[in-house]
Design a protein around this nucleic acid. Structure first.
Length: 455
RNA sequence: GUGGUUGUAGCUCAGCAGGUUAGAGCGCUGGUUUGUGGCACCAGAGGUCGCCGGUUCGAAUCCGGUCUUCCACCCCA
């Protein structure tokens, strides 16, 4: 029997103790914020029926879904003809479940299934892994966590405001100071395509314009021509390209630029109201950046669109979201408007790692290691251990009878700040020798005195 | 899905015009110190050179395939 080398599936990772401590720091920050804003937690299964998932993310999305092979005789319904036709005919007969691709669609499914129990507006948050059969890259994994917060059942622009506020709070608490919350409105994009005489093509338009920073205006024009946009339309677009800095200046310009598009003006109006509310709330527009060419997955967004980008790092967006007017429609429940957004924990982790922002002290570490020389010391140590833990001090007793040097090395490696030494002298006195490793100072104390010292 | 890239000790990497027993630093184990960690010194363990196949008298080194890593495109958290 040859021993096989263990390995992980492509695009997945283990998280060791250090990584988990850091991930928890991020997760706790996000969770805290969601709760502070009145969101309630929800979890849904890792797998959904394939019928729930397919068709919600576009053709590319369907390709990226992980499908689960049926249990048992999964080939029993497959005919020779199916095999000849190919994958599209075989797939529905061998797989009826898939791993969730995001948290929004399962949430929509939940809302529809529980519409009678839910009182609207419904604010929920959800922190769970999702899976995508994408090709992995930096900041792109096949299994990653999303932290979603959505509000459904209200058209109020207060929701948009709260999203901005939550992002600001989370980033402030994580120590991220150089980032922008890009915000746009799908209606503005619709207006844009109307005004340049290419109504209904905002999707294509944005895919091209979105690359402006990357490839430049010249290349974008070429791409637009390739996509059969008219020369005239491209010409009319050029004022958008060299738009002035500043949210207010952009808004003023667009009011005249989009004057002929009712829907475009409506988008401007919504955005202005959100910014106005931000001021009334007592906050300001710091970090908030109106980005006219921000597009995102246009599949289901109908109003505001968000994306958060941290500056000077090699990772893409760390958060995104927007308003969708009829997400539950495909599941037979119309008229439920919602806004939601998502933090990508894994990307936030990579960003913070790259910027060196993880605080040293958030490691969840043991405070005290108890060392001893013999069986008698071990028994005495157990009592001390109990005493320390009852006082709420994270403590460990070295499990094996080993040289004291080895026990110290263990404490050092694990960065445990205090070592208690129990020998005959200490037991006779009913006290403890306590050494603080950072200073090397050692003193003899009673358990009570030691606990006092630590508090 | 398309194109490219990477893979040698636990980790970071050297070695590669094909040629005796594959190296370093860090880490690990033990010792100098049988009641004291970090520092120093000494000693030691650890590799089917990603995997499969081919060329060759001979392959870590050349060729093909495969898996993996990272990158660009696409898309996205």
């Amino acid at each position: 029997m040859s021993v096989q080398k263990p390995s992980l599936p492509k695009g997945t990772r283990d998280f060791g103790p250090l990584q988990m401590a850091r991930r928890n720091f991020i997760l706790d920050t996000i969770k805290d914020t969601f709760k502070l804003f009145g969101f309630q937690q929800l979890e849904t299964p890792a797998m959904e029926n394939l019928s729930t998932l397919t068709g919600k993310y576009g053709d590319e999305g369907d390709q990226l879904l992980f499908k689960i092979l049926n249990s048992g005789e999964f080939l029993k319904n497959v005919t020779q003809e199916d095999l000849e036709v190919g994958g599209s005919a075989v797939l529905p007969k061998v797989s009826e479940k898939g791993l969730r691709y995001d948290l929004t669609v399962p949430f929509a499914r939940y809302v529809v299934m529980n519409r009678n129990e839910i009182s609207f507006p419904f604010k929920r948050f959800q922190i769970q892994p999702v899976w995508r059969a994408d090709r992995p890259q930096r900041g792109r994994y096949r299994e990653f966590y999303q932290c979603d917060a959505d509000i459904v059942g209200t058209d109020s622009l207060l929701c948009e405001l709260e999203i901005i506020l939550m992002i600001k709070r989370v980033f402030a608490n994580l120590g991220l100071k150089d980032y922008s919350i890009k915000i746009n409105n799908r209606k503005i994009l619709t207006g844009l395509s109307e005004v340049i005489g290419e109504a209904g093509r905002e999707g294509e338009l944005c895919v091209a314009i979105d690359k402006l920073d990357k490839i430049g205006w010249q290349k974008v024009q070429e791409e637009l021509l390739d996509r059969n946009f008219t020369q005239d339309a491209i010409h009319r677009l050029s004022p958008i390209i060299d738009l002035k800095e500043g949210n207010q200046a952009k808004l003023e310009f667009l009011k005249s630029y989009l004057a002929d598009s009712a829907i475009g003006l409506q988008g401007i109006g919504e955005l202005e109201e959100v910014l106005h509310m931000l001021q009334s709330y007592g906050d300001n527009q710091e970090f908030v950046d109106f980005d006219v060419v921000l597009a995102r997955g246009l599949s289901y967004y109908t109003g505001a669109i968000f994306e958060v980008k941290v500056h000077h790092v090699s990772i893409g967006s760390v958060s995104g979201g927007g308003r969708y007017d009829n997400l539950t429609g495909v599941f037979g429940l119309d008229g439920v408007s919602g806004v939601g957004f998502s933090f990508g924990v894994d990307r936030l982790y990579d960003v913070m790692d790259e910027l060196g922002l993880f605080p040293e002290e958030n490691l969840e570490r043991t405070q005290v290691l108890i060392t001893y020389f013999d069986q008698k010391g071990f028994a005495y140590g157990l009592k001390i251990l109990n005493g320390l833990r009852k006082s709420g001090i994270a403590a460990e007793l070295y499990p094996d009878q080993a040289k004291i040097k080895k026990q110290f090395t263990y404490a050092d490696k694990k960065q445990i700040p205090f070592v208690v030494i129990l020998g005959d002298n200490e037991m006779e006195l009913g006290k403890l020798s306590v050494k603080e490793l950072s200073s090397g100072k050692q003193e003899t104390l009673s358990l009570e005195e030691f606990v006092m010292k630590l508090k």
